[in-house]
Computed example of a mutant assay.
Amino acid sequence: MWDPVRYLAFADHRSRPFHDLVARIGAVSPRRVVDLGCGPGNLTGALVTRWPTAVVEALDSSPEMVAAARERGLDARVQDVTTWMPGADTDVVVTNAVLQWVPGHEALVRRWVDALPSGAWLGMQVPGNSDAPSHAVTRALIARSWPWLTGLVPVSPVLGPEGYADVLAAAEVDAWETTYLQRLTGTDAVLEWLTGTTLRPVRAALDDAAWAEFRARLAPLLRAEYPQRPDGTTWFPFRRVFAVARVR
């Protein structure tokens, strides 16, 4: 279950890749813009501002996130990304930090591009840090002490820029990657970051007591990998992979 409040605790860091992605989409007057995996809708508003004459749809698989987006006045609805297809008037699709949850999403992306009208734009961004120390120590802890949870923190099925360029080769494609050096604040900041995303399946599988023990065991491992600086902040490198395609 998604927690919109916890997710938004790091809104500034989570929003920067979105804005960097959308800045590379060159659509001028799109008819319909789809935010595929809108979360709580805090970023969808930027699409409304960028393209004020477009119909902007906000879609997400989480009812909690959709409810939060609707509270912002957005046209939001629950939608499984694996079954969604663009309509004939869809000129822009933005999918930000969603496809890393979907094994085999390369086929989805190809289907979308094939279905989009000529001149339409698809922009995608996925985290590329599932082999980072934060995830490696989490998987190692699970393997040692909670082996029945193995697989809940997988290596994400994401490609590098060249891989997505190949997937989108039928269109005009621009693909790149960026590692953001995020400056997090607060005690056990990396653990709090992971709790809002990567550790959601683990939290859902554990009762309150087991979850508290899991956090207590993981916290010092993360502090060793990401030590707090004298000013109380923590550097957290985070790799992101981007691709923007314009349909021919």
Rank of each mutant, 00 (worst) to 15 (best):
R110S: 08
A97N: 10
V155A: 13
F10H: 14
Y164D: 01
V247N: 14
T179D: 00
V155F: 11
T53Y: 11
D166R: 15
R111C: 09
E225M: 07
P4M: 01
E172K: 08
L184K: 13
R6S: 06
H13D: 10
V173M: 06
Q125S: 08
D188M: 11
V55M: 12
R111G: 10
C38H: 07
A67E: 12
A68M: 05
T198L: 09
L222T: 01
V202A: 04
A224K: 12
N42R: 12
M124A: 10
L116P: 05
A46I: 06
A68Y: 09
A27Y: 05
R139K: 09
L8Q: 11
E71H: 15
T187M: 06
R31D: 11
R32F: 07
M1T: 09
L47K: 00
T49V: 12
V247E: 04
T83N: 10
V155H: 14
Y180L: 07
V98Y: 04
P227T: 01
P230C: 01
A212R: 14
R24S: 02
P103Q: 08
R111E: 13
D89R: 14
R31W: 13
G163V: 03
A136L: 15
A9H: 12
R111N: 13
S156L: 15
R200Y: 06
V48S: 11
V202P: 04
G45I: 04
A54M: 07
P201N: 08
M124R: 03
G87R: 08
